[in-house]
Computed example of a mutant assay.
Amino acid sequence: MLFRQLFDSESSTYTYLIADPKLKEAILVDPVLEQVERDCRLLKELDLTLRYCLETHIHADHITGTGKLRELTGCRGIVPDQAQASCADRQIQDLEILELGEIVIQAIATPGHTDSHMAYHLNNNAVLTGDSLFIRGCGRTDFQSGDAGILYDSVTQQLFTLPAPTLVYPAHDYRGCTVSTMGEELRWNPRFAGRDRNGFIDFMNHLDLPDPKKMMEAVPANEQCGRTSVAA
């Protein structure tokens, strides 16, 4: 399996390229519109055909590159079940398997940051956690139907129950971290370690963070698979 972690500095977003080198086919997870040229160049350099763009959720801090990549490559766009994106080619459900050659990805429903969110368990040894779990942090829960109690349940019941050596690859990082393990996060993540459910809810409800700069533009665009303008 070929695996690349790609970074967009403006939104601090990680995009993941996952490919089967024998098939020469690839998946991009959480692509960013402004990085489509970079992603296409890398696909060409590695002699890969893009088969799927896979979203963890409807993002509020960047516009997805899925729509543009569909135009350029003919790939299929996949979003979590119940996500408000009727333009997607497919919705993936909890525990559903997506296979591409030797790549096996299992969707794990992890709502809370948003009301429709998936983590992706990759070949039983890594998990792309989206915004549900960051390295020593987690996504916020104060917009897009977020719910702190639901996020606590998702992380503690669906992610922290994975084997401790499982690699953790988040959708964002703001401090230069690239990868962790589930065992590390269970022990050291300050949002969860030593907090019960009520304590977590209270903490999250008092973060008082500003809205993401691109939220008013990004959310409606992402509900249209990255289209920044929609005909009347």
Results as ranks from 00 to 15, higher is better:
residue 187 R to L: 14
residue 53 C to Y: 10
residue 61 D to K: 00
residue 90 R to K: 10
residue 15 T to S: 15
residue 232 A to D: 11
residue 183 G to V: 09
residue 117 H to V: 02
residue 139 G to K: 00
residue 76 R to K: 12
residue 156 T to M: 05
residue 21 P to F: 09
residue 231 A to D: 08
residue 140 R to N: 09
residue 204 M to H: 06
residue 81 D to K: 14
residue 14 Y to L: 03
residue 44 K to M: 11
residue 223 E to Q: 15
residue 33 L to F: 13
residue 221 A to N: 02
residue 147 D to V: 01
residue 184 E to L: 13
residue 167 L to D: 10
residue 57 H to S: 07
residue 100 L to S: 05
residue 103 I to G: 09
residue 68 K to D: 12
residue 168 V to A: 12
residue 176 G to C: 13
residue 2 L to R: 10
residue 67 G to W: 03
residue 39 D to G: 03
residue 82 Q to E: 11
residue 79 V to Y: 07
residue 37 E to F: 11
residue 97 I to E: 09
residue 89 D to C: 00
residue 164 A to F: 15
residue 193 A to H: 11
residue 195 R to K: 14
residue 132 S to V: 02
residue 212 P to N: 01
residue 96 E to D: 04
residue 16 Y to W: 08
residue 209 L to T: 13
residue 224 Q to C: 14
residue 134 F to A: 00
residue 209 L to C: 11
residue 143 F to G: 02
residue 8 D to M: 00
residue 222 N to R: 01
residue 211 D to A: 08
residue 141 T to M: 00
residue 148 A to K: 03
residue 138 C to G: 06
residue 110 T to K: 07
residue 200 F to T: 02
residue 135 I to R: 03
residue 232 A to Y: 15
residue 136 R to L: 14
residue 145 S to C: 11
residue 159 L to S: 08
residue 55 E to G: 12
residue 77 G to N: 04
residue 14 Y to F: 15
residue 136 R to E: 11
residue 23 L to T: 04
residue 124 N to Q: 15
residue 189 N to M: 06
residue 12 S to N: 08
residue 134 F to C: 00
residue 110 T to I: 05
residue 46 L to E: 10
residue 60 A to G: 14
residue 180 S to I: 07
residue 52 Y to A: 02
residue 190 P to M: 01
residue 150 I to N: 02
residue 47 D to Y: 13
residue 95 L to E: 14
residue 33 L to H: 11
residue 4 R to A: 09
residue 9 S to Y: 04
residue 73 T to P: 10
residue 22 K to C: 09
residue 61 D to H: 02
residue 148 A to W: 06
residue 133 L to N: 06
residue 71 E to D: 10
residue 211 D to C: 10
residue 230 V to A: 15
residue 103 I to D: 05
residue 76 R to M: 06
residue 50 L to N: 03
residue 185 E to W: 15
residue 151 L to C: 04
residue 47 D to W: 12
residue 190 P to I: 03
residue 148 A to E: 04
residue 127 V to D: 01
residue 228 T to R: 03
residue 17 L to D: 06
residue 28 L to A: 07
residue 37 E to M: 05
residue 32 V to H: 10
residue 156 T to D: 13
residue 197 R to A: 06
residue 73 T to F: 07
residue 122 L to Q: 04
residue 8 D to N: 10
residue 67 G to Q: 03
residue 180 S to M: 09
residue 170 P to L: 07
residue 204 M to Y: 11
residue 230 V to C: 12
residue 123 N to L: 02
residue 131 D to W: 01
residue 146 G to V: 01
residue 73 T to C: 04
residue 114 T to C: 03
residue 49 T to R: 15
residue 232 A to L: 13
residue 149 G to K: 01
residue 92 I to T: 06
residue 134 F to T: 01
residue 107 A to E: 05
residue 194 G to P: 12
residue 128 L to I: 07
residue 110 T to G: 13
residue 57 H to N: 08
residue 171 A to W: 05
residue 149 G to A: 04
residue 114 T to H: 05
residue 207 L to Y: 03
